[in-house]
Simulated assay, not measured.
Amino acid sequence: MLVFRGFCGSRDFFRRSPAPTALGIGNFDGVHLGHQALLGRIKVAANTRSLSPAVLTFEPHPREFLAPHTAPTRLSTLREKLERIAGQGIERAYVCRFGAALAACPAENFVKDILVDRLRVAHLVVGDDFRFGAQRTGDIALLQRLGQQHGFTVETLSGVACAGERVSSSLVRQALEAGDMEAAAQLLGQPYAISGRIVPGRQLGRRLGVPTANIRVKHHKPPLSGVFAVEVDGLPAGRRTGVANLGLRPSLGGKMPPTLEVHLFDFSGDLYGAHICVRFLHKLRDEQVFASLDALRQQIAQDIVSAKHYFSH
């Protein structure tokens, strides 16, 4: 998938699309089942109309710019999001920097200057609750009128339901916060995962007899915390199971950035610099404070037993 990044207010915003597009617009945080349904419709429209399947997404999330103190926790980094979108068969992703210029852009200008002139949209796919333009004044009715004016068609999708509820990024966050990894996996179509590069740590796990791979977490505030049974992809030896701690490590003071530490079963070797994907399958417990390193060592041993029991069943 080709990725283009730019600023909507500048003259050189993206390269003009070389071919008319079947375009979807959204934040796509987590790329859950609802997003996947929309991406599937883009592919169908592109195939039947000989168009290029593409998406337009925003960085940062609009709410992070407009209301940073109340913005939701991200489910995925930009890299993770783009990787999952690419996995759905989309050929092009246009990443638009959301700032003051875009926030003030009138709905009609957004359609004419960006969708039509730059991205050459021929068919547009959006959710039935899609809003756009300054103050979110643009709605589906306006989009359809502008489509008739500029020569593109508009397709809207109703939400996808799971267990009687509309799938949304907020619903995924609720499941992760509650530690219900099985429910989160249903909403996402796969287990929740965090990707990152393995970096040197404080070697505490090694001193405790349980060496860990420390993954640099780029989520400012991960949507989950605790101790989990996990699968890890991206290793030279293939997929491995293990136990992971994600959080602030309160027994060590809790004042460091969020840290993801993974102890891999039946594995030894130097993994520094490797980029891996950690899939969270089952929550074992919350983070807790231990009175001593010996108490921490005993709990880690029990976590390993619990995780292995989970995988054996």
Rank of each mutant, 00 (worst) to 15 (best):
R207Y: 04
T73Q: 11
D12P: 08
T73G: 01
E108T: 10
I198P: 03
G242L: 06
R120I: 05
P60D: 04
V210P: 02
G269D: 14
N245C: 05
A291H: 11
L204E: 07
L146V: 01
M1P: 08
V31N: 11
H32G: 03
T156G: 00
C8Y: 12
Y272P: 03
V160D: 00
D113G: 07
S170E: 13
F130A: 10
C8F: 11
N27F: 07
Q298Y: 08
P191Y: 09
L204T: 00
R97Q: 11
S170C: 08
F4L: 14
R197L: 09
L252W: 08
R279N: 02
G226Y: 01
M1I: 05
A104W: 05
A291Y: 06
I140K: 05
R11S: 12
A103L: 03
A101Q: 14
L252V: 12
G226K: 00
P60C: 05
L33E: 06
H275G: 09
D270R: 02
K43I: 10
D139T: 02
A86N: 01
G247A: 04
F28N: 05
D180G: 01
L38S: 02
I25H: 12
G253A: 12
F7H: 15
D29Y: 12
P258D: 03
E177M: 04
R240M: 13
G254A: 04
A46S: 13
R166V: 00
A184V: 09
R15T: 14
S168C: 08
P68V: 09
G269R: 07
C105T: 12
P250M: 11
I300T: 05
L39R: 14
T73I: 02
L293A: 02
A46D: 10
V126K: 03
Q288P: 07
E91M: 07
S17Q: 11
V232C: 10
Q203I: 06
L82E: 00
L187C: 03
R11E: 14
V95I: 15
E231W: 09
V95H: 08
N214M: 01
G9R: 09
G254M: 12
Y94I: 10
G147N: 11
R118S: 05
K255V: 01
T259Y: 04
G40F: 01
A19N: 04
A86R: 07
A229L: 06
G30A: 11
P20T: 03
G209K: 03
P68L: 10
K218N: 13
G269Y: 09
H219K: 11
